[in-house]
Protein backbone atom coordinates (compact mmCIF):
# COMPACT_ATOMS: atom_id res chain seq x y z
CA UNK A 1 0.00 0.00 0.00
CA UNK A 2 1.49 3.29 -0.94
CA UNK A 3 1.11 6.48 1.00
CA UNK A 4 -2.14 8.26 0.35
CA UNK A 5 -0.91 11.74 -0.40
CA UNK A 6 -3.31 14.50 0.21
CA UNK A 7 -2.75 17.82 -1.46
CA UNK A 8 -2.54 19.61 1.94
CA UNK A 9 0.67 17.68 2.66
CA UNK A 10 2.24 18.90 -0.57
CA UNK A 11 1.00 22.43 0.05
CA UNK A 12 2.43 22.55 3.58
CA UNK A 13 5.72 20.99 2.40
CA UNK A 14 5.88 23.72 -0.24
CA UNK A 15 5.38 26.23 2.54
CA UNK A 16 8.23 24.69 4.55
CA UNK A 17 10.59 24.95 1.56
CA UNK A 18 9.53 28.57 1.12
CA UNK A 19 10.11 29.31 4.79
CA UNK A 20 13.54 27.70 4.64
CA UNK A 21 14.43 29.74 1.58
CA UNK A 22 13.43 32.88 3.46
CA UNK A 23 15.44 31.80 6.51
CA UNK A 24 18.45 31.15 4.27
CA UNK A 25 18.27 34.66 2.78
CA UNK A 26 17.97 36.22 6.24
CA UNK A 27 20.90 34.19 7.57
CA UNK A 28 23.06 35.14 4.57
CA UNK A 29 22.38 38.76 5.50
CA UNK A 30 23.13 38.53 9.20
CA UNK A 31 25.94 35.93 9.04
CA UNK A 32 28.29 36.88 6.19
CA UNK A 33 31.05 34.31 6.84
CA UNK A 34 30.36 31.03 5.04
CA UNK A 35 31.39 28.79 7.92
CA UNK A 36 29.50 30.52 10.74
CA UNK A 37 27.41 28.26 12.94
CA UNK A 38 24.14 29.85 11.83
CA UNK A 39 24.91 29.17 8.17
CA UNK A 40 25.97 25.60 8.88
CA UNK A 41 22.76 25.14 10.80
CA UNK A 42 20.63 26.34 7.88
CA UNK A 43 22.60 24.11 5.51
CA UNK A 44 21.84 21.11 7.73
CA UNK A 45 18.16 22.13 7.78
CA UNK A 46 18.07 21.92 3.98
CA UNK A 47 19.28 18.33 4.15
CA UNK A 48 16.83 17.42 6.92
CA UNK A 49 13.89 19.02 5.08
CA UNK A 50 14.86 17.40 1.77
CA UNK A 51 15.14 13.94 3.33
CA UNK A 52 11.87 14.30 5.26
CA UNK A 53 10.04 15.55 2.16
CA UNK A 54 11.30 12.58 0.15
CA UNK A 55 10.44 10.07 2.87
CA UNK A 56 6.93 11.46 3.36
CA UNK A 57 6.01 11.72 -0.31
CA UNK A 58 7.72 8.67 -1.85
CA UNK A 59 6.09 5.63 -0.25
CA UNK A 60 5.15 4.24 3.12
CA UNK A 61 8.03 1.76 3.02
CA UNK A 62 10.46 4.58 2.28
CA UNK A 63 9.12 6.53 5.25
CA UNK A 64 9.46 3.50 7.57
CA UNK A 65 13.03 2.85 6.39
CA UNK A 66 13.87 6.52 6.88
CA UNK A 67 12.53 6.65 10.45
CA UNK A 68 14.24 3.32 11.18
CA UNK A 69 17.52 4.89 10.06
CA UNK A 70 16.91 7.88 12.29
CA UNK A 71 16.41 5.50 15.23
CA UNK A 72 19.60 3.65 14.28
CA UNK A 73 21.67 6.84 14.12
CA UNK A 74 20.17 8.09 17.38
CA UNK A 75 20.83 4.82 19.22
CA UNK A 76 24.36 4.65 17.80
CA UNK A 77 25.09 8.20 18.89
CA UNK A 78 23.68 7.46 22.35
CA UNK A 79 25.73 4.26 22.74
CA UNK A 80 28.85 6.11 21.57
CA UNK A 81 28.36 8.72 24.31
CA UNK A 82 27.44 6.58 27.30
CA UNK A 83 29.98 4.27 28.92
CA UNK A 84 29.45 0.65 27.87
CA UNK A 85 31.24 -2.49 29.04
CA UNK A 86 33.21 -4.56 26.59
CA UNK A 87 31.49 -7.70 27.94
CA UNK A 88 28.14 -6.37 26.66
CA UNK A 89 29.03 -6.11 22.98
CA UNK A 90 26.70 -8.93 22.03
CA UNK A 91 23.87 -7.34 24.00
CA UNK A 92 24.40 -4.07 22.14
CA UNK A 93 24.13 -6.01 18.91
CA UNK A 94 20.70 -7.34 20.04
CA UNK A 95 19.68 -3.81 20.93
CA UNK A 96 20.46 -2.68 17.37
CA UNK A 97 18.51 -5.63 15.96
CA UNK A 98 15.39 -4.48 17.79
CA UNK A 99 15.19 -1.48 15.40
CA UNK A 100 14.28 -3.35 12.18
CA UNK A 101 11.88 -5.53 14.17
CA UNK A 102 10.13 -2.59 15.80
CA UNK A 103 9.64 -0.90 12.40
CA UNK A 104 8.56 -4.19 10.88
CA UNK A 105 5.69 -4.44 13.39
CA UNK A 106 4.62 -1.01 12.23
CA UNK A 107 4.89 -2.09 8.60
CA UNK A 108 2.50 -4.99 9.15
CA UNK A 109 0.26 -2.75 11.30
CA UNK A 110 0.51 -4.99 14.36
CA UNK A 111 -0.28 -2.44 17.05
CA UNK A 112 -0.27 -4.95 19.93
CA UNK A 113 3.31 -6.02 19.24
CA UNK A 114 4.52 -2.50 18.40
CA UNK A 115 3.36 -1.22 21.78
CA UNK A 116 4.85 -4.00 23.96
CA UNK A 117 7.89 -5.24 22.03
CA UNK A 118 10.43 -2.91 23.64
CA UNK A 119 8.79 -2.14 27.02
CA UNK A 120 8.09 -5.85 27.67
CA UNK A 121 10.10 -8.22 25.50
CA UNK A 122 13.31 -6.21 25.10
CA UNK A 123 13.02 -5.16 28.75
CA UNK A 124 13.14 -8.82 29.75
CA UNK A 125 15.54 -10.01 27.06
CA UNK A 126 18.32 -7.51 27.75
CA UNK A 127 18.91 -8.59 31.37
CA UNK A 128 18.94 -12.21 30.17
CA UNK A 129 21.62 -11.39 27.62
CA UNK A 130 23.56 -9.40 30.23
CA UNK A 131 23.40 -12.30 32.68
CA UNK A 132 24.68 -14.67 30.02
CA UNK A 133 27.59 -12.29 29.41
CA UNK A 134 28.39 -13.03 33.06
CA UNK A 135 29.81 -9.73 34.31
CA UNK A 136 27.98 -8.54 37.47
CA UNK A 137 30.20 -5.50 38.02
CA UNK A 138 28.12 -2.54 36.81
CA UNK A 139 25.17 -4.79 35.92
CA UNK A 140 22.40 -2.38 36.92
CA UNK A 141 24.10 0.51 35.20
CA UNK A 142 24.50 -1.46 31.97
CA UNK A 143 20.88 -2.63 32.00
CA UNK A 144 19.49 0.80 32.90
CA UNK A 145 21.61 2.56 30.28
CA UNK A 146 20.47 0.23 27.52
CA UNK A 147 16.80 0.37 28.50
CA UNK A 148 16.83 4.14 28.54
CA UNK A 149 18.45 4.23 25.11
CA UNK A 150 16.03 1.75 23.57
CA UNK A 151 12.98 3.44 25.07
CA UNK A 152 14.02 6.92 23.91
CA UNK A 153 15.69 6.27 20.57
CA UNK A 154 13.68 3.32 19.29
CA UNK A 155 10.36 2.97 21.13
CA UNK A 156 9.49 6.67 21.49
CA UNK A 157 10.65 7.70 18.04
CA UNK A 158 8.86 4.83 16.34
CA UNK A 159 5.51 6.36 17.39
CA UNK A 160 6.19 8.92 14.71
CA UNK A 161 6.16 6.11 12.17
CA UNK A 162 3.02 4.48 13.58
CA UNK A 163 1.13 7.70 12.77
CA UNK A 164 1.64 6.68 9.13
CA UNK A 165 -0.42 3.52 9.52
CA UNK A 166 -3.22 4.66 11.83
CA UNK A 167 -6.47 3.39 10.28
CA UNK A 168 -7.17 5.56 7.29
CA UNK A 169 -10.45 6.53 5.72
CA UNK A 170 -12.44 7.76 8.69
CA UNK A 171 -11.40 11.31 7.94
CA UNK A 172 -11.12 11.76 4.18
CA UNK A 173 -8.83 14.79 4.30
CA UNK A 174 -6.44 13.27 6.90
CA UNK A 175 -3.44 11.13 5.85
CA UNK A 176 -0.65 9.43 7.78
CA UNK A 177 2.05 11.65 6.24
CA UNK A 178 -0.10 14.66 7.14
CA UNK A 179 -0.11 13.71 10.83
CA UNK A 180 3.66 13.06 10.78
CA UNK A 181 4.27 16.38 9.07
CA UNK A 182 2.09 18.17 11.65
CA UNK A 183 4.01 16.63 14.55
CA UNK A 184 7.47 17.16 13.01
CA UNK A 185 6.74 20.72 12.01
CA UNK A 186 5.26 21.78 15.34
CA UNK A 187 7.98 20.06 17.39
CA UNK A 188 10.84 21.60 15.44
CA UNK A 189 9.24 25.03 15.10
CA UNK A 190 8.49 24.95 18.84
CA UNK A 191 12.23 24.42 19.46
CA UNK A 192 13.13 27.24 17.08
CA UNK A 193 10.47 29.58 18.51
CA UNK A 194 11.49 28.93 22.13
CA UNK A 195 15.10 29.61 21.12
CA UNK A 196 14.23 32.86 19.30
CA UNK A 197 11.88 34.23 21.99
CA UNK A 198 14.48 33.34 24.61
CA UNK A 199 17.26 35.15 22.70
CA UNK A 200 15.09 38.24 22.25
CA UNK A 201 13.34 38.57 25.61
CA UNK A 202 14.81 35.90 27.88
CA UNK A 203 15.44 37.00 31.48
CA UNK A 204 14.22 34.47 34.03
CA UNK A 205 15.99 31.15 33.89
CA UNK A 206 13.79 28.07 34.32
CA UNK A 207 16.44 25.49 35.03
CA UNK A 208 19.87 27.09 35.49
CA UNK A 209 21.57 23.85 36.49
CA UNK A 210 20.40 21.81 33.48
CA UNK A 211 20.13 24.28 30.61
CA UNK A 212 20.93 27.94 31.34
CA UNK A 213 19.51 29.04 27.95
CA UNK A 214 15.95 28.07 28.86
CA UNK A 215 13.93 31.04 30.10
CA UNK A 216 10.33 31.64 31.13
CA UNK A 217 10.00 34.24 28.36
CA UNK A 218 11.36 31.81 25.74
CA UNK A 219 9.06 29.05 26.90
CA UNK A 220 5.91 31.19 27.00
CA UNK A 221 6.64 32.93 23.70
CA UNK A 222 7.49 29.61 22.04
CA UNK A 223 4.38 27.91 23.43
CA UNK A 224 2.15 30.75 22.19
CA UNK A 225 3.72 30.52 18.73
CA UNK A 226 3.16 26.76 18.72
CA UNK A 227 -0.49 27.14 19.79
CA UNK A 228 -1.07 29.63 17.00
CA UNK A 229 0.60 27.40 14.39
CA UNK A 230 -1.30 24.38 15.63
CA UNK A 231 -4.62 26.21 15.26
CA UNK A 232 -3.62 27.29 11.74
CA UNK A 233 -2.33 23.93 10.51
CA UNK A 234 -4.69 21.51 12.25
CA UNK A 235 -7.59 21.90 9.81
CA UNK A 236 -5.23 21.10 6.90
CA UNK A 237 -3.44 18.08 8.31
CA UNK A 238 -5.40 16.64 11.23
CA UNK A 239 -8.97 15.72 12.20
CA UNK A 240 -8.81 18.18 15.14
CA UNK A 241 -11.30 20.92 15.80
CA UNK A 242 -10.06 24.19 17.32
CA UNK A 243 -10.22 22.93 20.93
CA UNK A 244 -8.18 19.80 20.21
CA UNK A 245 -5.76 21.72 18.00
CA UNK A 246 -4.98 24.03 20.93
CA UNK A 247 -4.64 21.05 23.28
CA UNK A 248 -2.28 19.30 20.83
CA UNK A 249 -0.24 22.49 20.48
CA UNK A 250 0.04 22.83 24.26
CA UNK A 251 1.01 19.17 24.58
CA UNK A 252 3.76 19.54 21.98
CA UNK A 253 5.08 22.77 23.53
CA UNK A 254 5.35 21.31 27.03
CA UNK A 255 6.53 17.84 25.99
CA UNK A 256 9.09 19.27 23.58
CA UNK A 257 10.46 21.50 26.31
CA UNK A 258 10.98 18.58 28.68
CA UNK A 259 12.37 16.30 25.98
CA UNK A 260 14.97 18.96 25.28
CA UNK A 261 15.78 19.37 28.99
CA UNK A 262 16.02 15.64 29.53
CA UNK A 263 18.72 15.31 26.88
CA UNK A 264 20.51 18.42 28.19
CA UNK A 265 20.66 16.73 31.59
CA UNK A 266 22.14 13.60 29.99
CA UNK A 267 24.81 15.69 28.22
CA UNK A 268 25.62 17.55 31.46
CA UNK A 269 25.96 14.23 33.26
CA UNK A 270 28.43 13.03 30.63
CA UNK A 271 30.24 16.37 30.53
CA UNK A 272 29.74 17.10 26.82
CA UNK A 273 28.24 20.01 24.88
CA UNK A 274 27.11 18.48 21.60
CA UNK A 275 25.96 14.90 21.25
CA UNK A 276 27.91 14.36 18.01
CA UNK A 277 28.97 15.83 14.66
CA UNK A 278 26.39 14.44 12.28
CA UNK A 279 24.54 17.73 11.70
CA UNK A 280 26.97 20.67 11.36
CA UNK A 281 25.64 23.71 13.23
CA UNK A 282 23.28 21.60 15.35
CA UNK A 283 25.69 19.04 16.82
CA UNK A 284 24.62 15.44 16.72
CA UNK A 285 21.33 13.86 15.75
CA UNK A 286 20.28 13.69 19.41
CA UNK A 287 20.52 17.49 19.61
CA UNK A 288 17.84 17.64 16.91
CA UNK A 289 15.48 14.84 17.94
CA UNK A 290 15.58 15.34 21.72
CA UNK A 291 12.16 17.02 21.80
CA UNK A 292 10.68 14.43 19.45
CA UNK A 293 11.40 11.58 21.85
CA UNK A 294 8.81 13.22 24.13
CA UNK A 295 6.34 14.73 21.66
CA UNK A 296 6.02 11.66 19.40
CA UNK A 297 4.53 9.16 21.90
CA UNK A 298 2.40 11.79 23.67
CA UNK A 299 0.96 13.25 20.47
CA UNK A 300 0.41 9.75 19.09
CA UNK A 301 -1.67 8.62 22.06
CA UNK A 302 -3.57 11.92 22.20
CA UNK A 303 -4.57 11.49 18.56
CA UNK A 304 -5.22 7.77 18.73
CA UNK A 305 -7.33 7.99 21.89
CA UNK A 306 -9.52 10.81 20.62
CA UNK A 307 -9.84 9.96 16.93
CA UNK A 308 -8.76 6.48 15.81
Amino acid sequence: MSVILSSPVLAILGGVWGLLLLATLVVWRIAPTPDSELRQRVRSWWIIVALCSLALTFSRTAALVFFGLVSFLALKEYLTLVPTRQADRRVLFWAYLSIPLQYYWIGIEWYGMFIIFIPVYMFLLIPVALVLAGDTQGYLRAAGTLHWGLMSMVFSLSHLAFLLVLPQGQYPQVSGPGLVLFLLLLTELNDVAQFCWGKLFGKHKISPTVSPNKTVEGFVGGAMTTLLLSALLASWLTPFGLRDALLAGALIAVAGFFGDLSLSALKRDLGIKDSGRLLPGHGGILDRIDSLTYTAPLFFHFTRYLYF
Binding site: K76, L79, R89, F93, L278
Partner: peptide
Protein backbone atom coordinates in the same frame (compact mmCIF):
# COMPACT_ATOMS: atom_id res chain seq x y z
CA UNK B 1 36.11 -10.16 19.04
CA UNK B 2 34.57 -11.39 15.80
CA UNK B 3 31.26 -9.51 15.87
CA UNK B 4 31.51 -5.83 14.92
CA UNK B 5 29.10 -3.51 16.77
CA UNK B 6 28.45 0.01 15.40
CA UNK B 7 29.69 3.06 17.30
CA UNK B 8 30.54 6.47 15.82
Amino acid sequence: AWLPVPFF
